Lab assay of single mutants.
Amino acid sequence: MAAGGDHGSPDSYRSPLASRYASPEMCFVFSDRYKFRTWRQLWLWLAEAEQTLGLPITDEQIQEMKSNLENIDFKMAAEEEKRLRHDVMAHVHTFGHCCPKAAGIIHLGATSCYVGDNTDLIILRNALDLLLPKLARVISRLADFAKERASLPTLGFTHFQPAQLTTVGKRCCLWIQDLCMDLQNLKRVRDDLRFRGVKGTTGTQASFLQLFEGDDHKVEQLDKMVTEKAGFKRAFIITGQTYTRKVDIEVLSVLASLGASVHKICTDIRLLANLKEMEEPFEKQQIGSSAMPYKRNPMRSERCCSLARHLMTLVMDPLQTASVQWFERTLDDSANRRICLAEAFLTADTILNTLQNISEGLVVYPKVIERRIRQELPFMATENIIMAMVKAGGSRQDCHEKIRVLSQQAASVVKQEGGDNDLIERIQVDAYFSPIHSQLDHLLDPSSFTGRASQQVQRFLEEEVYPLLKPYESVMKVKAELCL
């Protein structure tokens, strides 16, 4: 049975990233139509530049190519590739079939990587351009969430054990800070992308030097003109047959890092959902379990974690691919890159769409948070109580021993009897502590235990987050809708 299948058929496997999760716009960027249309555009740009620099290419040939950029006979191309065992030459023939007058000058002087690699770089750039505003929107939604809850005390956790208090907004800023680093890295790697350009079979530009009869300047002009037509500021000066596969490492490393950030955020949300302090959106008709109707599973956060793990592992592909590119190139890269580049971007696209949807509907339960604080705060307040007693004339050592005994009794009630923490009640009825009984409410005010959390939130948002989001103001209103 021949390899390949009808990918629109229910009898043929289709990647869930495309069929179930990723956005239509990201799927289109990695589609065959987008790819092969870009090949034709690159052939047109090459012909236009070659004509401008004096090669015998007519206006009629150029116009014929322009008129057929979208006229792609995919069936013919597939048949040609089956016959020739070469995808680029299959599309040269297919393009030439609908451009008979231009057929002889299509791909003039070029090698397969002229269309293959340059198209990949265009796709990487455009895919990054799709991700950047999506990530900015996630940051914006979380920034709104953090600002609104900047002063809401909550129990902090280290080692997932109760620690000092923080605020809900401050905790959210930990998430935002990681995503801001990801946004900066995505922008950097996007701006650092260079075009492969017009380089020939081993990167020496020998074929173009021959076409222009040894004119170095025209060869350099050709490279520059096509690079500018493709919208790049610069091209690699040095290439082998391909652009260095280190570029793929750079791009997928940034995406993998984004995956790590999203995994951490969504894990926190899942843990908070278990504590009943916070939940992701839950639709009115949504079913959490087929057997347990009360369940409210954090399905979206779980999906993000599941896909983020996949995204983090994909960076190993370009690392290994770059390491086995012998001399000017081997074909070890080809099949692998067809999979890992598309999957990385479709996965990143999915987790950003999902995280935006989550961040637009996060639900906080202040009463649950308050109750958990009441359970733990008495123990945390013991040092403040000791200091207040010393100020009232008591002995630190005597007070410490009193607190120690009462704390152990209260802990026994919590752990052995399943009761509430009654340390404060014990202190309130103990005559030894009568000098500070009137101060206990103040000493137990949760806001006095959150330090500068709310001020940190305000400063972080104003100095770091809002300036970073400013270039994306025009796209901030787009909502994230999930079908599944």
Rank of each mutant, 00 (worst) to 15 (best):
A2P: 11
A2M: 15
A2R: 15
G4M: 15
D6R: 08
D6E: 15
H7T: 15
P10R: 15
P10V: 15
D11R: 11
D11I: 15
Y13V: 15
S19T: 00
Y21D: 00
S23T: 06
S23R: 10
P24W: 11
E25T: 14
M26N: 01
M26Y: 00
F28K: 08
V29Q: 07
F30R: 01
F30W: 13
D32N: 15
R33E: 13
F36M: 08
F36N: 07
R37S: 11
T38Y: 05
R40Q: 05
L42C: 12
L44T: 06
L46S: 05
A47L: 04
E48R: 05
A49W: 04
Q51P: 00
Q51L: 09
T52F: 07
L53F: 06
L53T: 11
G54F: 08
L55P: 02
L55G: 01
I57V: 10
Q63L: 12
K66L: 10
L69R: 07
N71V: 11
F74N: 13
M76P: 06
A78R: 13
E80P: 03
E81K: 00
R85T: 05
A90Q: 02
A90W: 02
F95K: 01
H97T: 10
C98V: 12
C98Q: 15
A103T: 13
A103Q: 13
I105P: 04
L108F: 12
A110E: 04
T111D: 00
T111K: 01
Y114R: 00
Y114D: 06
G116H: 04
N118L: 02
N118V: 00
N118H: 07
L121Y: 03
L121F: 03
I123L: 14
D129R: 09
L130T: 13
L131S: 13
L132S: 14
P133C: 12
L135T: 14
R137E: 08
R137P: 13
R137L: 15
S140D: 11
R141W: 15
R141M: 15
L142Y: 08
D144W: 14
E148C: 12
E148L: 10
P153K: 03
T158M: 01
F160A: 05
F160L: 06
A163W: 01
Q164N: 09
L165K: 02
C172W: 05
C173T: 09
C173P: 00
L174P: 06
I176F: 03
M181G: 09
D182S: 05
L183N: 05
D191Y: 09
L193H: 03
R196F: 06
G203A: 01
G203V: 01
A206S: 06
S207L: 02
F208Q: 05
F212Q: 06
G214D: 12
G214M: 07
D215C: 09
D216I: 07
K218Y: 12
Q221H: 12
Q221T: 11
L222D: 08
L222E: 02
D223S: 07
F236V: 07
I238R: 01
Q241N: 00
Y243W: 05
Y243I: 10
T244Y: 01
R245H: 00
D248C: 03
E250M: 09
V254C: 09
S257I: 08
G259T: 04
A260W: 04
S261P: 04
S261H: 01
V262S: 15
K264L: 04
I265Y: 15
T267N: 10
R270F: 03
R270Y: 03
L271N: 03
L272V: 12
A273C: 15
N274M: 12
K276Y: 08
K276A: 05
K276R: 08
E280Q: 01
F282T: 08
E283C: 13
Q286C: 00
Q286W: 02
I287Y: 02
I287C: 13
I287A: 09
S289G: 01
K295Q: 03
P298M: 07
S301R: 00
E302A: 01
C305R: 02
C305Y: 01
S306Y: 04
M312L: 12
L314D: 05
V315H: 10
D317I: 05
P318Y: 00
A322G: 09
T330V: 09
D332R: 02
D333L: 02
R338G: 03
I339S: 13
I339E: 03
A342N: 09
A344C: 04
T347Y: 07
A348M: 13
L352D: 04
N353M: 13
N353E: 15
T354H: 14
L355Q: 08
Q356A: 14
N357Y: 07
E360T: 04
V364G: 03
V364L: 10
P366E: 14
P366V: 05
E370W: 08
R371W: 02
R371S: 04
R371V: 02
L377I: 13
L377T: 00
L377H: 03
A381S: 07
I385Y: 08
A388E: 07
A388Q: 06
V390P: 05
A392G: 12
G393C: 07
G394N: 10
Q397R: 06
Q397C: 06
Q397W: 02
C399D: 06
H400Y: 05
K402S: 05
R404M: 09
V405Y: 12
Q408E: 07
Q409S: 09
S412P: 05
V414G: 02
E417V: 07
E417N: 10
E417M: 12
G419M: 11
G419T: 08
D420E: 07
N421L: 07
D422L: 07
R426M: 09
R426S: 10
A431D: 12
Y432Q: 08
Y432I: 06
F433Q: 03
S434C: 08
L440C: 10
D441N: 10
H442E: 14
L443F: 07
L443E: 04
L444C: 02
L444G: 04
P446S: 07
F449E: 05
T450F: 06
T450N: 04
T450S: 05
R452G: 08
R452L: 10
R452Q: 09
A453F: 05
S454P: 13
Q455T: 13
Q456Y: 03
R459H: 10
R459T: 13
E462G: 11
E462K: 06
E464N: 06
Y466K: 15
K470Q: 13
P471S: 15
V475S: 14
M476A: 15
K477R: 15
